[in-house]
Write a protein that binds this DNA or RNA. Structure first.
Lengths: 204, 204
DNA sequence: AGTATTTTGTATCACTCGCTCTAGAATTGT
DNA sequence: ACAATTCTAGAGCGAGTGATACAAAATACT
């Protein structure tokens, strides 16, 4: 019983994601949000509880729609080493293709809200660790399949790759060029190409 | 002629840096600034022109007092490879020692201000490139002295190191542990340790 | 139909924002 | 002493902030 919602919840959340993504948490006002979500201010508070709760919801939706979906798509191919390589290639393409240079919502949030909100900070750290865990799974799988040297520390390398990913996302916001971003990534990706087994036999 | 300034300009700018560093540009109010700088709001506008101009001044002072000074100190030792290593070691120590987890003012600004202010964005990119140029000089010097393999691309590696540095600064704000930060940095530093000359003769 | 329940639009709350105005205090030159 | 100049303190500006109050509108259940 009761009156039905008149707006599309998915479209609304997408609008909220766009706002937070482009301007950050603090700089986004509730009125901006409501306008981009196509709803009134009262509906926003009625449906989502407030700005902070809406942000948490938007973060979770972004994780599902953007991060996890891409990870799943790449992991399904069954080519773990290529998955990492493609992940970074797509990252560069997306960073350069976005005229707003929004970067990554997680990375932006890590600087914007995480230091001042322990709860949201933990959530952001968790989302970032999902990406790191994806790297780790890819490395372990590639090592099992013989595509990556077993001498590489999978955990350490996954942390390194996440660090490089985060750095690239930040640099992309200062209008870094494709050449710059590729230069940042290349040494990390070449890590995965150390000779796999017999020492003394280079790949080149 | 005229009344003399009653406050210490250096102390005032330091207070401004602290504010911007801890809370970011947008989240810092002029009233917060004035209080931490020990001056009144009118004096702030009289002496620095306004919030944005004060931020630019603070950025420049931070570059001089923190970034360039550390670079000069490390470069004076004449041990370029060790300079890079020490730079990252100090970065980790400083990141963990700061209870506020403020990270790096440049990195924070790259996400907070750069995308919405082209002029300040260029300044931030310039400051970050000073650090990258330091890495490049160290690599070139170490290659000339025989400490780093000449096969390493100095420009590419300097971009990579800057990317890793930026990533570490961001991750440090989400309360990353020493182990995590060292794991992010280690593969990048090991890049500098590839066998220097004669192929076929490993270092280990 | 009638009632309970939920959503929606509008108006508004107290508060903070960056910034400016004005009056007075402090200095130097004549 | 007096004028000219610069700095300081505090009040206050219009605009915008997150959040709420309230009544009209729309639904489901009896």
């Amino acid at each position: 019983m009761g009156r039905l919602k008149e707006f599309d919840e998915d479209k609304a959340i997408d609008g909220a994601i766009d706002c937070f993504w482009a301007r950050g948490y603090e700089a986004t006002s509730v009125r901006d949000l409501a306008e981009h979500m196509g709803i009134g201010g009262a509906s926003l508070y009625n449906a989502y509880g407030g700005k902070r709760a809406l942000f948490a919801t938007a973060l979770e939706r972004y994780a599902d729609r953007t991060s996890r979906q891409r990870i799943a798509r790449l992991e399904e191919t069954g080519r773990p080493k290529e998955a990492i390589r493609t992940f970074f290639a797509e990252l560069i393409d997306r960073s350069l293709a976005d005229p707003q240079r929004r970067g990554c919502l997680f990375v932006n949030s890590a600087l914007d809200v995480a230091p001042h909100d322990a709860e949201l900070g933990k959530a952001v750290a968790g989302y970032l660790d999902e990406v790191r865990a994806f790297f780790q799974r890819c490395i372990v799988a590639a090592q099992a399949a013989g595509g990556i040297s077993a001498r590489l520390d999978a955990v350490e390398t996954s942390h390194h790759l996440l660090g490089v990913l985060v750095g690239m996302r930040v640099l992309a916001r200062t209008h870094a060029s494709r050449e710059t971003l590729e230069a940042v990534a290349r040494p990390a990706l070449q890590l995965l190409d150390v000779p796999v087994a017999r020492p003394g036999k280079g790949k080149r």
